[in-house]
Protein backbone atom coordinates (compact mmCIF):
# COMPACT_ATOMS: atom_id res chain seq x y z
CA UNK A 1 0.00 0.00 0.00
CA UNK A 2 1.57 3.28 -1.12
CA UNK A 3 -0.92 5.90 -0.05
CA UNK A 4 -3.48 5.32 2.63
CA UNK A 5 -6.03 7.76 3.97
CA UNK A 6 -7.94 6.55 7.03
CA UNK A 7 -11.08 8.26 8.25
CA UNK A 8 -9.79 11.63 7.15
CA UNK A 9 -11.87 14.69 7.98
CA UNK A 10 -11.01 18.25 7.16
CA UNK A 11 -12.81 21.32 8.40
CA UNK A 12 -11.81 24.87 7.58
CA UNK A 13 -12.91 27.38 10.16
CA UNK A 14 -14.17 30.67 8.81
CA UNK A 15 -14.38 32.94 11.78
CA UNK A 16 -15.73 32.05 15.19
CA UNK A 17 -18.79 29.86 14.73
CA UNK A 18 -18.71 29.35 11.02
CA UNK A 19 -16.86 26.39 9.64
CA UNK A 20 -16.73 24.51 6.37
CA UNK A 21 -16.68 20.74 6.41
CA UNK A 22 -14.68 19.92 3.31
CA UNK A 23 -13.81 16.26 3.66
CA UNK A 24 -15.96 13.70 5.42
CA UNK A 25 -14.54 10.33 6.47
CA UNK A 26 -12.34 9.77 3.46
CA UNK A 27 -10.95 6.26 3.17
CA UNK A 28 -8.58 5.92 0.28
CA UNK A 29 -6.08 3.26 -0.62
CA UNK A 30 -3.71 3.59 -3.54
CA UNK A 31 -1.39 0.78 -4.57
CA UNK A 32 2.21 1.27 -5.69
CA UNK A 33 2.45 2.05 -9.39
CA UNK A 34 -1.22 2.85 -9.68
CA UNK A 35 -2.55 5.78 -11.71
CA UNK A 36 -5.57 7.10 -9.83
CA UNK A 37 -7.73 10.07 -10.73
CA UNK A 38 -9.86 12.05 -8.33
CA UNK A 39 -12.79 13.41 -10.27
CA UNK A 40 -15.39 15.85 -9.06
CA UNK A 41 -17.01 19.23 -9.45
CA UNK A 42 -15.19 22.28 -8.18
CA UNK A 43 -15.33 22.73 -4.43
CA UNK A 44 -15.56 19.01 -3.67
CA UNK A 45 -12.23 18.88 -1.86
CA UNK A 46 -10.08 17.19 -4.50
CA UNK A 47 -7.24 19.63 -4.06
CA UNK A 48 -7.55 19.38 -0.28
CA UNK A 49 -6.95 15.63 -0.48
CA UNK A 50 -3.89 16.25 -2.63
CA UNK A 51 -2.56 18.87 -0.21
CA UNK A 52 -3.03 16.44 2.66
CA UNK A 53 -1.04 13.75 0.85
CA UNK A 54 1.62 16.32 -0.06
CA UNK A 55 1.82 17.39 3.57
CA UNK A 56 1.02 21.01 2.71
CA UNK A 57 -2.06 20.79 4.90
CA UNK A 58 -3.08 18.68 7.88
CA UNK A 59 -6.25 16.66 8.41
CA UNK A 60 -8.61 17.76 11.19
CA UNK A 61 -8.92 14.10 12.17
CA UNK A 62 -7.79 10.81 10.70
CA UNK A 63 -4.45 9.76 9.29
CA UNK A 64 -2.61 10.14 6.01
CA UNK A 65 -0.02 7.42 5.55
CA UNK A 66 2.45 7.25 2.68
CA UNK A 67 4.94 4.38 2.47
CA UNK A 68 3.87 3.23 5.92
CA UNK A 69 4.73 6.55 7.51
CA UNK A 70 2.41 9.23 8.76
CA UNK A 71 2.60 12.40 6.69
CA UNK A 72 3.61 15.36 8.82
CA UNK A 73 5.24 17.80 6.41
CA UNK A 74 6.09 18.11 2.72
CA UNK A 75 8.73 15.71 1.51
CA UNK A 76 10.54 14.93 -1.69
CA UNK A 77 8.95 11.49 -1.83
CA UNK A 78 5.67 13.25 -2.76
CA UNK A 79 6.14 15.97 -5.35
CA UNK A 80 3.28 18.08 -6.69
CA UNK A 81 2.71 19.38 -10.22
CA UNK A 82 0.44 22.40 -9.80
CA UNK A 83 -2.19 23.69 -12.18
CA UNK A 84 -0.17 26.78 -13.00
CA UNK A 85 3.08 24.84 -12.92
CA UNK A 86 4.52 26.86 -10.07
CA UNK A 87 7.80 27.41 -11.89
CA UNK A 88 9.96 30.14 -10.38
CA UNK A 89 9.88 33.04 -12.87
CA UNK A 90 13.27 34.33 -11.70
CA UNK A 91 15.06 31.12 -12.63
CA UNK A 92 15.66 29.69 -16.06
CA UNK A 93 14.46 26.21 -16.98
CA UNK A 94 17.67 24.50 -15.92
CA UNK A 95 17.75 26.21 -12.52
CA UNK A 96 14.09 25.38 -11.98
CA UNK A 97 14.64 21.70 -12.68
CA UNK A 98 17.84 21.43 -10.65
CA UNK A 99 16.30 23.33 -7.70
CA UNK A 100 15.19 20.24 -5.83
CA UNK A 101 18.19 18.16 -6.91
CA UNK A 102 20.70 20.65 -5.49
CA UNK A 103 18.76 20.53 -2.22
CA UNK A 104 19.43 16.80 -2.15
CA UNK A 105 23.14 17.68 -1.82
CA UNK A 106 23.79 16.56 -5.35
CA UNK A 107 26.77 18.13 -7.15
CA UNK A 108 25.90 20.77 -9.73
CA UNK A 109 27.25 18.67 -12.58
CA UNK A 110 25.34 15.60 -11.54
CA UNK A 111 22.16 17.62 -11.04
CA UNK A 112 22.43 19.18 -14.48
CA UNK A 113 22.92 15.81 -16.11
CA UNK A 114 19.88 14.46 -14.34
CA UNK A 115 17.89 17.56 -15.25
CA UNK A 116 18.85 17.13 -18.92
CA UNK A 117 17.60 13.58 -18.74
CA UNK A 118 14.28 14.77 -17.33
CA UNK A 119 13.96 17.60 -19.83
CA UNK A 120 14.63 15.25 -22.74
CA UNK A 121 11.88 13.01 -21.43
CA UNK A 122 9.44 15.89 -21.90
CA UNK A 123 11.12 16.94 -25.18
CA UNK A 124 12.51 20.23 -23.89
CA UNK A 125 16.24 19.48 -24.11
CA UNK A 126 16.87 22.64 -26.13
CA UNK A 127 15.23 25.07 -23.75
CA UNK A 128 17.49 24.90 -20.70
CA UNK A 129 18.38 28.61 -20.75
CA UNK A 130 14.85 29.92 -21.39
CA UNK A 131 12.89 31.70 -18.69
CA UNK A 132 9.37 30.48 -17.85
CA UNK A 133 7.65 33.51 -19.43
CA UNK A 134 9.28 32.68 -22.74
CA UNK A 135 7.56 29.29 -22.81
CA UNK A 136 4.04 28.39 -23.86
CA UNK A 137 1.57 27.02 -21.30
CA UNK A 138 2.18 23.45 -22.45
CA UNK A 139 5.95 23.86 -22.27
CA UNK A 140 5.71 25.26 -18.75
CA UNK A 141 3.76 22.21 -17.65
CA UNK A 142 6.37 19.99 -19.26
CA UNK A 143 9.09 21.75 -17.27
CA UNK A 144 7.01 21.36 -14.11
CA UNK A 145 6.61 17.64 -14.84
CA UNK A 146 10.34 17.29 -15.49
CA UNK A 147 11.12 19.16 -12.26
CA UNK A 148 8.98 16.71 -10.33
CA UNK A 149 10.17 13.58 -12.13
CA UNK A 150 13.89 14.24 -11.59
CA UNK A 151 13.22 14.19 -7.85
CA UNK A 152 12.36 10.52 -8.33
CA UNK A 153 9.36 10.72 -5.99
CA UNK A 154 7.47 7.67 -4.77
CA UNK A 155 4.21 9.41 -5.48
CA UNK A 156 3.62 12.03 -8.15
CA UNK A 157 0.74 14.33 -7.25
CA UNK A 158 -0.86 16.26 -10.10
CA UNK A 159 -3.35 19.02 -9.37
CA UNK A 160 -5.31 19.70 -12.59
CA UNK A 161 -2.02 20.11 -14.43
CA UNK A 162 -3.57 20.40 -17.88
CA UNK A 163 -6.70 22.37 -17.02
CA UNK A 164 -5.38 25.66 -18.34
CA UNK A 165 -4.10 24.25 -21.64
CA UNK A 166 -5.72 24.23 -25.05
CA UNK A 167 -7.25 21.00 -26.32
CA UNK A 168 -4.48 20.00 -28.76
CA UNK A 169 -1.71 20.52 -26.23
CA UNK A 170 -3.71 18.60 -23.68
CA UNK A 171 -4.15 15.59 -25.98
CA UNK A 172 -0.42 15.50 -26.66
CA UNK A 173 0.44 15.78 -22.97
CA UNK A 174 -2.05 13.02 -22.13
CA UNK A 175 -0.17 10.78 -24.53
CA UNK A 176 3.19 11.73 -23.08
CA UNK A 177 2.08 11.36 -19.48
CA UNK A 178 0.87 7.83 -20.23
CA UNK A 179 4.26 7.05 -21.75
CA UNK A 180 6.07 8.51 -18.77
CA UNK A 181 3.91 6.51 -16.40
CA UNK A 182 4.57 3.29 -18.31
CA UNK A 183 8.33 3.98 -18.40
CA UNK A 184 8.78 5.00 -14.80
CA UNK A 185 6.02 3.03 -13.08
CA UNK A 186 5.38 5.89 -10.65
CA UNK A 187 2.35 6.04 -8.44
CA UNK A 188 0.34 8.96 -9.77
CA UNK A 189 -2.56 10.73 -8.08
CA UNK A 190 -4.22 12.94 -10.67
CA UNK A 191 -6.83 15.57 -9.93
CA UNK A 192 -9.21 16.71 -12.62
CA UNK A 193 -12.73 17.89 -13.28
CA UNK A 194 -12.63 16.51 -16.80
CA UNK A 195 -14.23 13.06 -17.13
CA UNK A 196 -12.57 12.20 -20.42
CA UNK A 197 -9.16 13.18 -19.07
CA UNK A 198 -9.63 10.99 -16.02
CA UNK A 199 -10.75 8.01 -18.12
CA UNK A 200 -8.01 8.42 -20.72
CA UNK A 201 -5.21 8.49 -18.18
CA UNK A 202 -6.03 6.43 -15.15
CA UNK A 203 -6.44 2.90 -13.97
CA UNK A 204 -9.00 3.89 -11.43
CA UNK A 205 -11.29 6.90 -11.24
CA UNK A 206 -12.64 7.99 -7.88
CA UNK A 207 -15.75 10.08 -8.21
CA UNK A 208 -16.21 12.58 -5.42
CA UNK A 209 -19.40 14.08 -4.11
CA UNK A 210 -19.53 17.58 -2.88
CA UNK A 211 -19.87 19.35 0.47
CA UNK A 212 -18.86 17.58 2.48
CA UNK A 213 -16.49 15.83 0.11
CA UNK A 214 -16.83 12.07 0.06
CA UNK A 215 -15.68 9.40 -2.32
CA UNK A 216 -18.93 8.45 -3.99
CA UNK A 217 -17.97 5.75 -6.43
CA UNK A 218 -14.85 4.06 -7.72
CA UNK A 219 -14.61 3.04 -11.38
CA UNK A 220 -11.91 0.73 -12.66
CA UNK A 221 -10.90 1.56 -16.21
CA UNK A 222 -10.10 -1.60 -18.11
CA UNK A 223 -9.21 -0.31 -21.52
CA UNK A 224 -6.13 -1.08 -23.59
CA UNK A 225 -3.31 1.45 -23.77
CA UNK A 226 -2.58 3.70 -25.54
CA UNK A 227 -6.12 4.78 -24.99
CA UNK A 228 -8.48 5.94 -27.66
CA UNK A 229 -11.37 8.12 -26.45
CA UNK A 230 -13.70 6.43 -28.95
CA UNK A 231 -13.01 3.01 -27.39
CA UNK A 232 -16.43 1.54 -26.51
CA UNK A 233 -15.29 0.71 -22.98
CA UNK A 234 -14.41 4.35 -22.37
CA UNK A 235 -17.56 5.69 -24.02
CA UNK A 236 -19.71 3.44 -21.84
CA UNK A 237 -17.85 4.37 -18.69
CA UNK A 238 -18.10 8.03 -19.56
CA UNK A 239 -21.89 7.73 -19.69
CA UNK A 240 -22.02 5.99 -16.34
CA UNK A 241 -19.74 8.53 -14.70
CA UNK A 242 -21.71 11.38 -16.25
CA UNK A 243 -24.91 9.92 -14.87
CA UNK A 244 -23.49 9.85 -11.37
CA UNK A 245 -22.06 13.30 -11.73
CA UNK A 246 -25.31 14.88 -12.77
CA UNK A 247 -26.71 14.34 -9.31
CA UNK A 248 -23.72 16.12 -7.80
CA UNK A 249 -23.94 18.94 -10.28
CA UNK A 250 -27.58 19.47 -9.50
CA UNK A 251 -26.71 19.62 -5.85
CA UNK A 252 -24.09 22.30 -6.48
CA UNK A 253 -26.33 24.29 -8.80
CA UNK A 254 -29.20 24.20 -6.34
CA UNK A 255 -26.89 25.51 -3.70
CA UNK A 256 -25.92 28.38 -5.95
CA UNK A 257 -29.21 29.24 -7.64
CA UNK A 258 -31.85 27.99 -5.20
CA UNK A 259 -34.08 24.92 -5.04
CA UNK A 260 -36.04 25.68 -8.18
CA UNK A 261 -33.14 24.81 -10.38
CA UNK A 262 -33.54 21.52 -12.24
CA UNK A 263 -30.46 20.51 -14.15
CA UNK A 264 -31.95 17.28 -15.51
CA UNK A 265 -34.90 18.93 -17.16
CA UNK A 266 -33.02 22.03 -18.15
CA UNK A 267 -32.97 22.76 -21.88
CA UNK A 268 -29.27 23.48 -21.95
CA UNK A 269 -28.50 19.91 -21.12
CA UNK A 270 -29.32 18.40 -24.51
CA UNK A 271 -27.10 20.83 -26.28
CA UNK A 272 -24.33 19.98 -23.87
CA UNK A 273 -24.49 16.34 -24.79
CA UNK A 274 -21.94 16.70 -27.57
CA UNK A 275 -19.35 18.06 -25.21
CA UNK A 276 -20.02 15.51 -22.55
CA UNK A 277 -17.04 14.98 -20.39
CA UNK A 278 -15.51 18.35 -20.77
CA UNK A 279 -15.83 21.50 -18.69
CA UNK A 280 -18.22 20.23 -16.11
Amino acid sequence: MKVNLEQVNKTFSKGKDDSLHVLNDIDLKIEAGEFVSLLGPSGCGKTTILNLIAGLDHPTSGEVIVNGEKVKKPGTDRVVVFQQGGLFPWMNVMDNVTYGLLLKKMSKKEAEEKAMEGLRMVHLGNFTQAFPHELSGGMKQRVAIARSLVMDPDVLLMDEPFAALDEQTRIILHQELQEIWEQTGKTIVFITHNIREALTLSERVLLMSTRPGEIKRSFTVQAARPRDPSDSVLVNLEKRVMGELEEEMEKVLKEEFGDDYRFKTSAVRDRNRDHMGDHI
Binding site: L56, F82, G100, M151
Partner: peptide
Protein backbone atom coordinates in the same frame (compact mmCIF):
# COMPACT_ATOMS: atom_id res chain seq x y z
CA UNK B 1 1.65 30.52 -2.14
CA UNK B 2 2.14 28.34 -5.23
CA UNK B 3 5.87 29.20 -5.20
CA UNK B 4 6.13 28.44 -1.50
CA UNK B 5 4.27 25.16 -1.88
CA UNK B 6 6.29 24.15 -4.92
CA UNK B 7 9.55 24.87 -3.11
CA UNK B 8 8.42 23.05 0.01
CA UNK B 9 7.45 19.90 -1.86
CA UNK B 10 10.86 20.02 -3.54
CA UNK B 11 12.47 19.91 -0.12
CA UNK B 12 13.15 23.56 0.68
CA UNK B 13 12.52 25.08 4.10
CA UNK B 14 13.76 27.66 6.58
CA UNK B 15 16.51 30.01 5.47
CA UNK B 16 16.92 28.23 2.14
CA UNK B 17 13.27 28.93 1.37
CA UNK B 18 13.71 32.57 2.42
CA UNK B 19 16.81 33.04 0.29
CA UNK B 20 15.74 31.19 -2.85
CA UNK B 21 12.02 31.90 -2.99
CA UNK B 22 10.68 34.55 -0.60
CA UNK B 23 13.41 37.12 -1.34
CA UNK B 24 13.46 36.82 -5.15
CA UNK B 25 9.66 36.68 -5.32
CA UNK B 26 9.49 39.99 -3.43
CA UNK B 27 12.06 41.76 -5.61
Amino acid sequence: SIYLNAARTLGSSGTHLARTVILPASV
